[in-house]
Amino acid sequence: MSVVTEQGTPGSSSGSPLAQWFSDGWIATRRNLIKIKRVPDILVFTILQPIMFVLLFSQVYAGAMAIDNYTSFLMAGIFAQTVIFGSTYSGSAMAQDLKEGIIDRFRTLPMSTSAVLIGRTNGDLMINGISMLIMMGTGWLVGWRVTTSFWGLLGGISLLLLFAYAFSWVMALLGMSVRSPEVINNASFMILFPLTFISNAFVPLHTLPTVLRNIAEWNPVSALVQSARVLFGNTDPSFPPPTSWTLQNPVITIIIGIVLMLLIFVPLCIRKFGSISSR
């Protein structure tokens, strides 16, 4: 057996640095796409949970809510909650990769420093894209309609997915810092569940007690839900108008939020990745 027959020339068929960067990002993304395909839990969570949420909330709560069309009101909330939870995969997956030692392998390869992170966050984007399609289909079946235009629909979906994509970078940094997939999973549940519930996602804000209403009005999740509602034409004109600036200007708020998250967390993640090592 002869393992080493000639000295290799890595990078010989590579091309420009930009082409390498794209190639590295794609290879790392492909790894995460294969994982979605092979790990049944992720697929079940991505497909079944959105269906379950849409059906449960629209059918169980609709009667108790003093809203004419609760399903229309609800959908933006379910969209937002689902994609935010979808972003937490980046946290647990980065922690898992560190634990398994594969980050060490990647870091000894002459690949782009950002590629693993780009691949990971793209994986979340894919998961969230699938979830969005499933939710829209299920929502349509139970009576959810977009009353604006195709562009409103596209704008709303883009904002939801982009916000979740930016949030994936926040979670990736947490995953690399905390290093325990279990802690990441439990902590994100403990934090994100209240965060998505103390918002306008499932109930109109004016029905909340004052303290909670104040929190909910400034909660970024509320702004995300509100911007989707506005773009989909799912707002209820009979509700009192929101009092916080963020809810009066939800689309701008969310765009600023996305840009800020990316500007802060992408460089932090890349810097962190450049110095982490398993065990």
Partner: peptide, 17 residues
Amino acid sequence: RRSIGVSGQYAAVDENL
């Protein structure tokens, strides 16, 4: 990194691939 190969104490492979 271009001239080295590294194999660690813990097999650094992707379980799902």
